[in-house]
Nucleic acid binder design. Structure first.
Length: 610
RNA sequence: GCGCUUGUAGCUCAGCCGGAUAGAGCAUCGGCCUUCUAAGCCGAGGGUCGCAGGUUCGAGUCCUGCCAAGCGCGCCA
């Protein structure tokens, strides 16, 4: 949470810096108010050290004008004046501006601004001119940001739980890029460690079954059907080359849980047996068969879901080039490591963690945390100015130790922002769905996509704030009814397209230039609402990106669609009056453009017919 | 027990670094298709913003305590 606050502060500094280049009314008003404050400072009404944050918001109630500022309320104390009187003085000191047609003081001391609608029509021209680039900005100023997301163990296909991280992470990355950051998307492949050994061993055991052996499959092994697919591919390619009799394989192996033993001890013994019997090279054959097959599947799956990475970073590569050892050396040099009980510990508790953490086990093996330290050192060495990690919320306890590692490595821990994705409960109608990778009884992302399609899946996933617990009802998500909110936005887009198709059929023409000249005819309340809504798109995009909250964009698109649907029902666009018709067509063309831009950012299609 | 996250309408959730009368979708009820797609629109009902204090001109929003839920507290990843 702290990080987020810091980020927003940064964003505001960036806002101010870029302010003069952004033709946005809100920011124009901010400058006017700031000038008024300066004037009042020089005449002694306000103390010299007054440096208020200028807060301007869109008025909810049209009676309160278009924008409102609470400046007088905030400064009243410093000015030793009551808010309404101060508001009078601020208003008097406010420089004139053509776009501002009226300034009012209301309520306890709000300053309400009324904007000339003729100026607001300009947004329609801007949307037309900038087209698919409307809304993009350079706020991020090319700052290099790395976004790591999904990073699921390559031990099985992605399930619907990973889907939310994939959708959220990719949209966060795309949003940041849209507002001018230089974004590097990365998937950390956990291709080292015990889980991978369990996978390799599971494949080998299934392979032995393919060879005709009959055996007890460990309850802690990977039982999914995909494991059989991989094993049978190996069997087809290599025949019985890696076959051993069951008696040899299971000789002296401690019993499994179902046999009255311990499933962990049982599977570890089988892994050791696999390595002994197969030998390094042949064991690696099974290991790679599993890794490659599953990773290819994950790659395809994500690509089809609209998620692209710049880099797939292998955990094994950190082992191979001694990065882990080097990272630990760096910590050791800084006095952050010590030995206890035969293991090597990182003194993370001195840097805000709950307790110290083992980085190298008694048996000499590095822990997962050790490679993660090396991975983050690698990220820092690559020169990223900001690191964003998107994790499942169940990993939140892991954050302090990684931040401690960043500090110990000599970096600013605030460079790292961990965004948590909550995935609480999966339902199918009323029934709770249990998820377990090991048992193979889970709903895959691919199944979800096949059932609902990419558009609905992505929309559903980023509809809510990421750290919010969420009930995911598969029945609802898989329904092709109007309960599925993505159709509402897409329908608005399709409707605009339909209107333009009707143009020919009705024997009417469109004159873009005439429409632009006639924008002043758009006096209806629905039209003014839409114009105002369109002008808010750039700031919505910026806020959604800087706060890492894609749902704000979704919310905006729904509101825009709602404004349009209401307009559609209230007024006819294809009227005989050519100036009015063309002005309206230009307005709804702008609506269509912004809908398409927003949906495009979410990698959701904008259908022309539905 | 400690830590993180969350608690807003019957359900799922918004609520813009504190601001004017707390919003949307779904569900319920009532209207609108001979006119550009009714996957739509208009209207109604529905709230002790978990509870109790505190901060101040003003609190759903900030602070403290309590209650409840989820998650985390490995030489697992």
């Amino acid at each position: 949470m702290d990080n987020r606050v810091i980020l927003i502060d940064n964003a505001q500094i960036i806002f101010r810096f870029f302010y003069p280049f952004l033709p946005v009314m809100k920011k124009k008003l901010e400058v006017l108010l700031r000038q008024a404050v300066d004037t009042l400072k020089s005449d002694g009404t306000l103390p010299q050290d007054a440096d208020p944050v200028i807060n301007i918001e869109h008025s909810r109630d049209p009676a309160h004008g278009d924008f409102a500022s609470n400046l007088a309320l905030m400064l009243a104390k410093a000015a030793k004046s009551n808010p309404r009187q101060l508001a009078e003085k601020i208003t008097a000191a406010l420089p004139g501006d053509d776009a501002v047609i009226k300034v009012e003081i209301a309520g306890p001391g709000f300053i309400n601004f009324f904007i000339d609608p003729n100026g607001q029509y300009e947004i329609i021209r801007t949307v037309h001119d900038r087209g698919s680039e409307f809304g993009l900005s350079k706020t991020g100023a090319g700052k290099r940001v790395q976004v790591e997301f999904v990073s699921a163990n390559p031990t099985g296909p992605l399930h619907v739980g990973h889907g939310r991280g994939a959708a959220y992470g990719s949209v966060v990355a795309d949003l940041l890029e849209a507002v001018g950051f230089d974004v590097h998307r990365e998937y950390y492949v956990n291709d080292a460690g015990r889980q991978m050994d369990i996978l390799a061993t599971s494949i080998w055991l299934r392979y032995l079954e393919d060879c005709g052996e009959v055996l007890h499959f460990p309850c802690n092994g990977y039982r999914g059907e995909y494991v059989r697919d991989i094993s049978s591919a190996v069997h087809r390619a290599s025949g019985d080359a890696f076959r051993f009799p069951v008696q040899t394989v299971f000789e002296d192996i401690p019993p499994d849980e179902t046999q009255g033993g311990d499933k962990e001890i049982h599977i570890d013994a089988l892994i050791a047996r696999a390595k002994t019997l197969l030998g390094g090279a042949h064991y690696e054959h099974f290991f790679q068969a599993g890794l490659n097959d599953i990773l290819d599947d994950i790659r395809d799956d994500l690509r089809e879901f609209g998620v692209e990475y710049q880099e797939w970073f292998s955990e094994r590569s950190l082992m191979a080039d001694d990065s882990v050892a080097k990272a630990l050396d760096r910590l050791r040099a800084g006095g952050h490591l010590y030995e206890k009980d035969g293991a090597v510990w990182f003194a993370s508790s001195r840097l805000g963690d709950e307790k110290d953490r083992v980085v190298q086990r008694e048996n000499g093996q590095y822990t997962y945390f050790a490679s993660d330290i090396a991975y983050h050192m690698n990220k820092l060495d690559r020169g990223f100015e900001e690191l964003i990690n998107i994790w499942g919320a169940d990993h939140h306890g892991y954050i302090p130790r990684v931040k401690a590692a960043m500090t110990a490595l000599g970096a600013d821990a605030d460079k790292l922002k961990v965004l948590l994705v909550q995935f609480a409960t999966l339902y199918r109608g009323e029934e709770k769905v249990q998820m377990s990778t090991r048992s193979g009884e889970f709903v895959t992302l691919r199944q979800l996509r096949n059932e609902v399609g990419r558009d609905a899946a992505r929309f559903f996933y980023v509809l809510r704030r990421s750290e919010q617990h969420m009930d995911f009802d598969l029945k609802l998500a898989t329904s092709r009814t109007n309960e599925n909110p993505v159709f509402y936005v897409q329908y608005a887009h399709a409707r605009v397209c339909s209107v333009f198709r009707q143009l020919d059929e009705k024997g009417l023409d469109r004159d873009l230039g005439l429409g632009m000249e006639s924008l002043g005819l758009l006096k209806e309340e629905h039209e003014l609402n839409l114009v105002g809504r369109l002008s808010r798109y750039p700031e919505t995009l910026e806020r959604a990106a800087l706060q890492h909250e894609p749902h704000q964009l979704i919310l905006y698109l729904r509101e825009l669609a709602n404004d349009f649907h209401a307009y559609y029902n209230a007024h006819q666009f294809l009227v005989e009056d050519a100036p009015l018709r063309n002005a309206r067509l230009n307005l709804i063309a702008a609506v269509r453009q912004v809908l398409a831009n927003g949906l495009g950012l979410l990698k959701i299609t904008s259908p022309e017919t539905m």
